[in-house]
């Protein structure tokens, strides 16, 4: 189900910046900043799936963690369900944490090896006092197990007795436990076998259909998967969003040269078409976020770059129909 917005925006991110200081010496004075996220703005509508793609080091995970307020953003605003959460204290954040959850990339590291599957899934229930009795708690955990397709009789097993796919299902069940409306999926399938990936993707889609108003921020680097699951897609490069649009437009009519080169790297299943596929190969590596290039930070690798690109930071502008691009040559 790919439904457009119903009740407006669940998350609005405005000019978000997250710099991590690099410190040196005995007194830990700051020598530089790693500009992990450098002025990112976007929104997610309630009930939709926003795909966030980019190569490793582009700041996708940091954006997700800023929204979860696991990091204190350097500047900018994050509006979650109408409330600016960017400056809230941990104490003020706590009640909001039941409304958003995180699904992790690594199904091995994200589950405490010393806890049983049942207590991992049930932990949010305890943290937010969502179960009034032990009976209710147990029933709720069993229900969560069933929702994600696990047998409730496996509740007392510990994580290492499960397969990777099952572990990821436990992670999903935990994320659902507190009735969150926003699920931030941080590369939830990239650590799984290909055959299991589809299962988890289908599970996430099914859940969205069943539990209406569930919103996903789906962070990934696999373009085919993102295409499959997302309603809209944002492409990140070196801490900035270069292009945002709906799924169809992005794949059929990408405007930013970076998006074009990314899409040209996706193999096609048809061997005849695959032979004709033209690849745009970028030169060089992604620059370090410690010393990002001036102006448009894609210019050193851009096939269309002109001298003006070195000086001006291109703003993200709407080219019509909600298709936003940050490139002066488009």
């Amino acid at each position: 189900m790919k439904s457009p917005s119903r009740n407006g925006k669940i998350v609005e991110v405005d000019d978000l910046k997250m710099y991590f200081p690099v410190t040196r010496g005995l007194l830990r004075h700051k020598v530089a900043d790693v500009k992990a996220v450098d002025g990112v703005s976007f929104h997610i509508k309630r009930g939709e799936t926003l795909g966030l793609v980019g190569e490793s080091g582009s700041g996708k995970t940091t954006v997700g963690r800023c929204i979860m307020r696991l990091y204190q953003p350097t500047s900018g605003h994050i509006i979650f369900e109408g409330q600016d959460i960017s400056q809230l204290s941990e104490h003020q954040m706590r009640p909001l944490r039941s409304r958003m959850s995180l699904i992790f990339q690594d199904p091995y590291g994200s589950l405490d090896p010393r806890q049983s599957a049942g207590s991992i899934v049930g932990e949010p229930l305890k943290v937010f006092h969502l179960a009034n009795s032990r009976q209710e708690y147990r029933e709720r955990v069993e229900e969560l197990f069933r929702i994600v397709g696990l047998d409730p009789s496996m509740m007392d097993r510990v994580p290492h007795e499960f397969s990777g796919g099952q572990r990821q299902r436990i992670g999903v069940a935990r994320a659902l436990a507190s009735n969150a409306s926003l699920l931030i999926c941080d590369e939830p399938i990239s650590a799984l076998d290909v055959s299991i990936q589809a299962q988890i993707i289908n599970l996430l889609e099914e859940l969205q259909e069943r539990l209406k108003r569930l919103t996903y921020l789906f962070i990934a680097h696999d373009l085919s998967v993102v295409r499959h699951i997302s309603d809209r897609i944002a492409v990140m490069y070196l801490g900035r969003i270069v292009e945002v649009t709906d799924r169809k437009t992005l794949y059929e009519n990408p405007l930013h040269p970076y998006t074009k080169s990314l899409l040209s790297a996706v193999p096609v299943a048809d061997p005849f078409l695959e032979e004709k596929r033209k690849r745009i190969i970028l030169k060089g590596e992604i620059p370090s976020p410690l010393t990002p290039p001036s102006g448009c930070n894609f210019h050193p690798r851009c096939p269309m770059a002109i001298s003006k690109c070195k000086k001006e930071v291109p703003p993200l502008r709407d080219t019509g129909g909600g298709h936003e691009v940050s490139c002066i040559r488009v």
Partner: peptide, 21 residues
């Protein structure tokens, strides 16, 4: 470990994360 982060993300208190995880 991510499970430490998971505890923080779900809003578990410091004591809970310390002694449980």
């Amino acid at each position: 470990n991510d499970y430490f982060l998971a505890g923080r993300a779900m809003g578990a208190g410091n004591l809970r994360i310390m002694f449980r995880h």
